[in-house]
Amino acid sequence: MTISRRDLLSQSGKLLILAPVAAVPAPPRRASEDAAAGYDPSRHRWAMAIDIDKCIGCGNCVRACEQENDVPAGFFRTWIERYQVSGADQEHPKVESPDGGRNGFPPSSNSNAKEFYVPKICNQCSESPCVQVCPVGATFDSPDGVVLVDQSYCLGCRYCVHACPYGCRYIHPGRHTVDKCTFCYHRITRGLTTACCEACPTGARALADLKDPRDPIHEFLRVNKVHVLKPHMATRAKVFYASLDGAVR
């Protein structure tokens, strides 16, 4: 991973600012790319890389998402879970996510258990169960691989909330329609990264463009032992985790 970072650093001076210390460097977001006019969805396929070994459970991502997207209190487009796994008991990990981890976690001092933080976000599945079940076409897979909701068309039947295996959807209490992570579609199509990635201090998560051959995601997928959540659900999730423990569900 260091190699890839060095490659990146050599690419442009701007990256000196952007490149994080960690193994998941922020991809070279083309900040200059003219948003509204010049965006061609067919040239992108959005995904995300999450490195469990980088997450410190600070809750910056949860708060940033709230501020960027006006997420209603008590609901989450992204959240953090803290896992504590004792010995061989993979079946019964202790998991907590107080208020989605938005204010961080009370410090733990448990030397007997394996502990780690797991950021969760919509997996932007290629075979999305939520898109499959929407009766009217109000939720859909965008040409650049983001699962979005047409707020003016959703009738609030909640079938998609049930269909999502990851608990990533909720009904917006004000609009009475379904709401979910958009991968900050309004940002990434302007050449910015998502709010959660922007605010993550350790580079634990990085937006990725699978269609960009220079994107560090390719190196990330090659170098790390990578996993997706609930692969048996066959949703072809596009949020890739490095160092994900088997106890995580």
């Binding site: 600012i17 900040a31 960027e68 979005l148 003016s152 579609y185 309004h186 910015l192 709010a195």
Partner: peptide, 17 residues
């Protein structure tokens, strides 16, 4: 709806800005 969703104004300016 794609363009409508893109209309949302970013709250975070981004590092370059």
């Amino acid at each position: 709806s794609l363009d409508e969703i893109r209309q949302q104004a970013p709250a975070f300016a981004g590092q370059a800005v």
